[in-house]
């Protein structure tokens, strides 16, 4: 008998996309806002400039993708950490809903916040 194909590729795609985007871009943010600006290596842009930047459609889309996909990356990884690391596979339905549900909630919140900047 042929078994049903898994829907995990969907979650894995979000996981992979989140891992890639956060690995590439989060270090840049840490370097800029966490190190270079506090140490005075580069001048700190004022609030108005940053606000204008954040309101640009491309920036909105970028922040949304960065936050949402990173959350889904976390969700997938945390799901398997709970399954295998903490041996909680018997709670898989709850874990599944908790992990991806949290990522989805975070995505909605991010969307609302970015929309209303």
């Amino acid at each position: 008998m042929q078994k049903k194909r898994s829907n995990d590729p969907f979650w894995w795609t979000l996981f992979g996309a989140g891992g890639t985007i956060s690995a590439f871009f989060i270090p840049v943010h840490v370097l800029l806002f966490g190190i270079a600006m506090p140490l005075g290596w580069i001048s700190v842009p004022d609030y108005e400039t940053l606000l204008q930047l954040a309101q640009h459609p491309v920036t909105r889309l970028y922040i949304f993708a960065l936050v949402s996909l990173s959350l889904f990356h976390w969700a997938h990884r945390f799901r398997y950490t709970l399954y295998d690391g903490l041996m909680l596979k018997h709670l898989e339905h709850y874990i599944f809903i908790f992990c991806y549900g949290s990522a989805l909630a975070g995505t909605v919140i991010t969307g609302v916040l970015i929309w209303t900047i």
Partner: peptide
């Protein structure tokens, strides 16, 4: 092979 490996026992079990 996909019929075997893209199911719940297949490649996506790998972490």
């Amino acid at each position: 092979r996909n019929d075997v490996l893209l199911t719940d026992d297949g490649i996506f079990e790998c972490t």
